[in-house]
């Protein structure tokens, strides 16, 4: 498959390799050290690093600044952008800013509701939704035009991604919704954390039945549990998350001091099983404030060394 952008992630996927991406949350302050440390830890084990955009609606350093920092360190960055905090002027403007620093990947999201974060009395924007942000990024790149119709001098060269949650309700529309994101212009997908493998595989079967796996690169999302407590929290408190009881039980039945290791083991087993699933083109490893575990997971699953493209 030919590539449309200078994105390394796109090159790896189009060459037929299983891609590996990860993500980092920016700091709650102006010190870049945590980003550079996280970047150094994982850079040789992944093909790209997403920088989250005020995740869970908690105010942090902006994704764009942290992406630029990674890029300057020679690390491929993916700019996550939510439609919660910016209108179409600011979204287009930030896309250009990212492109100016050769950031070649964008992940388009709507974002958690602000009531979950540190500014619950704030306003949300949602001038566009995530689907329309995908369209906007593609329009800017492919047509070389702003939404307003004017030409862009040196349009942004972004490989455009979106999220998919195979576990949110209603299940029947999960595949049509993916089709809609592809129609909007999504070129790669990073899924919600997968713990319910049977349900994920059922979703993938339906994705393949419609031939959607040939129209978009699907990266399966995984997050290792640090403890049984974390698994319970994700199961009960995080919207749109599907953690089966047997996974929680497996961790609860493990002595506390060994739960973290067990969490990593579950993550590795998940990747091994999903490598065999038709349509899975890579993995998105979201080790939340646990980036040091990413190299081990990548090695243990036979995904190291990363291909040169």
């Amino acid at each position: 498959m030919s590539t449309k952008t200078p994105s390394k992630l796109e090159k790896i996927l189009s060459a037929g390799h299983l891609a590996v991406t990860s993500e980092c949350g920016p700091p709650r302050g102006s010190d870049m050290d945590s980003i550079t440390k996280k970047g150094e830890l994982i850079k040789d084990y992944v093909d790209g690093v997403n920088i989250t955009d005020n995740q869970t609606s908690v105010t942090r350093m902006c994704s764009l600044a942290a992406c630029i920092k990674l890029k300057l360190m020679g690390i491929e960055a993916t700019l996550q952008m939510v439609t919660r905090d910016r209108n179409r002027i600011a979204l287009q403007s930030d896309i250009l800013g990212a492109a100016a620093f050769d950031i070649y990947n964008i992940l388009c999201l709507s974002g958690d509701h602000q009531s979950f974060g540190d500014c619950p009395t704030g306003q949300n924007v949602h001038d566009l939704d995530s689907m329309q942000l995908i369209q906007t990024a593609r329009h800017m790149r492919d047509e070389g035009k702003f939404l307003g119709g004017d030409d862009i001098k040196k349009p942004p060269q972004m490989f455009v991604g979106a999220a998919a949650n195979p576990f949110a309700d209603p299940f029947e529309i999960r595949v049509p919704r993916l089709a809609k994101k592809i129609a909007a212009g999504a070129e790669f997908i990073q899924t919600q954390c997968i713990y319910n493998l049977d349900k994920f595989e059922e979703w993938m079967r339906r994705v393949c039945d419609r031939g959607l796996h040939e129209k978009v690169y699907i990266l399966a999302g995984v997050t290792p549990f640090k403890s049984a407590g974390m698994a319970k929290f994700m199961k009960n408190r995080v919207p749109g998350m599907d953690v089966p009881d047997d996974v929680v039980k497996r961790l609860s039945d493990t002595p506390k001091e060994k739960q973290a290791d067990e969490g990593i083991k579950i993550c590795i087993e998940t990747i091994q099983r999903l490598k065999e699933v038709e349509g899975v083109k890579g993995f998105h490893i979201m080790a939340i404030e646990w980036e040091e575990k990413v190299p081990g997971i990548v090695k243990e699953t036979g995904l190291y060394p990363r291909p040169e493209v």
Partner: peptide, 20 residues
Amino acid sequence: CAKRILNGPCGGSTNGKCEL
């Protein structure tokens, strides 16, 4: 819709209820 999403639902929809 709490996010006035025109191409919904978002990923927070659970058991037919809003993430809010």
